[in-house]
Design a protein around this nucleic acid. Structure first.
Lengths: 199, 199
DNA sequence: ATAATTTGCTAACGAACGTTAGTATGCTTA
DNA sequence: TAAGCATACTAACGTTCGTTAGCAAATTAT
């Protein structure tokens, strides 16, 4: 059967990818520290030692997930820089882009948000520097929007933390089969952030 | 020396409490699974086995922290039920009360928010039921505020998740020595939620 | 004064941990 | 057909894990 043959090839060519995928799901569910290599092997139907034909270490998986997600968040920012009307529009673009990255892989996002502290140096410092840089971009929009008289004069860092917490939390409840698209969720969150709940 | 004598007594009377406090700090810092009883003992300057003169198990500490925090969140809700003007005012009261509980112990809050999944049954189910109940109270305010024409007609669950994510995130950045009081933070968050960032 | 409680120790338990070494099999490529 | 690569195995390593048993000293309560 041709399809079967192709599937077999696909499976074999991507065994490492498969390991990372299952590991990501386990890290999301039980946490990095509480997930054992034997747990992971069990999900894949192999022995724990066999994993090491494909990966260097448990932490290598965590590193891959964390830095791949970081890359994706930065890459998605392109859409924000192309927005040239208002800062409100820029913020909406940022929200949509950010949420889009999260919804494309909620498991990896959960690991990115919750398990990064298990990175060892120098990865931990690199990670925190990137996060700082990223958060700075949000602060930038808020402050420029304030200077332009578009936004209320507020504590920009406080506002960034509030905004990002709302956006990031989507990883915890978004379901691809739900009625809301990723884009729609980003729009609604941006609307909430900009206009609030009051009528 | 009198003071020393009193300190000694205080220390001994509260050794269990002291263990829970240090454990909470470690769970916050490294996560529950990555914190060993030997880590904990080391912080207290004793042997790991000595901990078991005071506690039944590692998980017992987690249970205590999680359910004490849950109790406090529910207790703080009294203030919300006394508010009888608008639903916006009710929501502000809820935000202030919620943030107040978090800021009184950010370490315990972090454990409450991030480590509950390591609870075993039946504690895990109990915990999730309580959380569901609590979230329902926020949904209730939002929906009644919508019916009263006070709030925009929105997805109430979506809104609850967005609001609570902002409130909960304070555990991650609040510092008692900072310039904002707990009350002030609650007010600002409520204002953000109700009116948004737009001028 | 004595009993009870609190606090801590050493030694050790079985289990689980991440990982390595060495080997075997089958598929892909030259 | 041979070489190389992908995949997985068994066996085991040293380490760390949460926890128990049994004992000892000091403090507190009766």
């Amino acid at each position: 059967m041709l399809t079967f043959g192709l599937m077999e090839i696909a499976v074999k060519k991507n065994r490492k990818q498969q390991i990372e995928e299952k590991a990501t799901a386990l890290f999301q569910e039980k946490g990095y520290a509480a997930t054992s290599m034997r747990d992971l092997a069990n999900v894949l139907g192999i022995e724990a030692a066999s994993l090491y034909s494909h990966i260097k270490s448990k932490e290598e998986i965590l590193q891959k997930v964390c830095f791949r997600m970081a890359d994706e968040f930065f890459a998605a920012w392109q859409a924000v820089e192309m927005e040239n009307s208002s800062y409100a529009a820029k913020l909406e673009k940022a929200a949509i882009a950010h949420v889009k990255v999260i919804t494309l892989d909620t498991n990896a996002s959960a690991v990115f948000f919750n398990e990064w502290r298990h990175l060892s140096e120098p990865f931990l410092s690199d990670f925190l520097n990137m996060r700082n840089d990223y958060e700075g971009r949000f602060i930038d929009i808020i402050e420029k929007g304030m200077e332009a008289g578009e936004f209320k004069t507020v504590d920009s860092k406080f506002m960034m933390l509030t905004i990002l917490s709302s956006l990031n939390w989507t990883h915890n409840w978004y379901k691809p089969e739900g009625s809301l698209s990723s884009q729609e969720i980003g729009k609604r969150l941006a609307n909430m952030i900009l206009n609030g709940l009051n009528k």
